[in-house]
């Protein structure tokens, strides 16, 4: 197996990183192991759980489903890049306010997906929230309070 690497330049949470990666390296492994963005986590190996969801040029992607080389030249936002000047993003705040997390492992992906959902549809119905989060698994909350959190964040945006 070839061990050649290729150079990539990727902006993550506002900082530009230049690295060498193996072509097979997944974006999530690049973020965690090379950039140190361990706030983004791996929950499965079949792109089902969504725990690794980040934004690639403003749209949510499952970072286990993107190669690092595909992100070359792109801007990535992770859960670590949402808080600005000590102020939580409204979706982060809503997850806190509504108890939308327990163990917190799905939370980074859930928050990133919720933000994308609200960017697409600022005033979603409960059904639209539920189908918009279908690609993200949570084992603790039963989704009840996650849905409420997205509703609160949507209300705040109005």
């Amino acid at each position: 197996m070839s061990r050649t690497t290729v150079p990539v330049t990727i902006t993550v949470d506002g900082t530009r990183y230049t690295d060498e990666v193996e072509p097979r390296t997944l974006l999530v492994h690049y973020l965690r192991e090379q950039v140190g963005k361990v706030g983004t986590v791996v929950g499965c190996d079949t792109s089902n759980c969504g725990a690794c969801t980040v934004h690639l040029d403003g749209r949510s992607v499952k970072s286990c489903n993107v190669l690092a080389v595909q992100a070359d030249g792109s801007e990535i936002t992770t859960v670590e890049g949402l808080e600005k000047d000590g102020v939580l993003h409204p979706v982060q705040q809503a997850f806190h306010d509504c108890h939308g997390l327990q163990c917190g492992y799905c939370t980074p992906g859930m928050i990133m997906q919720s933000i994308d959902l609200l960017n697409e549809n600022p005033d979603p119905s409960e059904e639209e929230i539920r189908s918009g989060l279908e690609g993200n698994l949570c084992r603790c909350t039963g989704y009840h309070n996650i849905v409420k959190a997205v509703q609160q964040a949507a209300g705040g945006a109005r």
Binding site: R32, K37, V38, G39, T40, V41, V42, T78, V79, E80, L82, E83, L88, Q92, F95, H96, D97, H99, L101, G104, Y105, T107, P108, I111
Partner: peptide, 19 residues
């Protein structure tokens, strides 16, 4: 009471074993 635990978890300042 809103949880004390949440801040690190919602901002990604976490200490999972794999980290």
């Amino acid at each position: 009471r809103k949880r004390k635990e949440d801040y690190r978890l919602i901002t990604g300042r976490t200490r999972w074993t794999d980290n």
